[in-house]
Amino acid sequence: MRVERLLSPLPGLLVLAALLLGLEWAVDAGLIRRALMPAPSTIALRLWDLLEAGDVWAPMMQTLRLVFTGFAIGSAIGIAAGLAMGWWPAVFRLLEPLVELIRPIPKSALVPPLMLFLGIGFTMKVTSVALVVTFPVLVNTLQGVRGVDRVMLDAARTHGWPARHTLLHLVLPAALPLVLAGMRISLGLAMVLAVLSEMLAGEGGLGFLILDMQRSFRVRDMYAWLVILAVLGLALNWLFVLAERRALHWQRR
């Protein structure tokens, strides 16, 4: 069983290795133009240089800070608004049409006007990330709150729990699986908006670098930064799934 689990990713790794080797060979044999796709080995070397010189950290931290801040703000607003709308019918009636009006706007299209108002700095980028994060979290929180067991709510009332206590200790935990599912979707979207706003604002970060390297025909650098971004996306996703499992440990037993 143990050996089997250790071996299970092996076929996948072999295919990955075969693809990389095939690419290497195709570039060497001149089937793919080096100006478009340098050999994977040279990209790996470039990546190593970047890591060794420590050039990786500043742009990576810039993008990470953007994703984290925007994600935190957007999630907080989404959860708060979702809870309020799910809990008080009056708030739902007040905000629901507005939410339905703003939700279908592609948030990426809001980057240009945000640039007009907030410039090209951190504020603009964080706002665009927070905007895209808010709505999936809000909609999922709302659904989660609505799905809370009536009997449990009645029980809380019977025990004389104040509304705030019920919200924090019954409704929020019960809605948590859906809230976290919404946040998982939002995390991917946060990365998309972070990269896009960095590309459009042109002021550093991984997104800016990838586009800038392409425009200055430093193709090897472009792929190296792309690999870094991919690893970052993978790591963030993995961390979130891990955190989600810990937070929901009571659910799957």
Binding site: V192, V195, L236
Partner: peptide
Amino acid sequence: GLVVELLRPIPVPAVIPP
């Protein structure tokens, strides 16, 4: 499966330059 899972988390705008 592995190759797909490795490609999935790349933010889309980043694949536009290549």
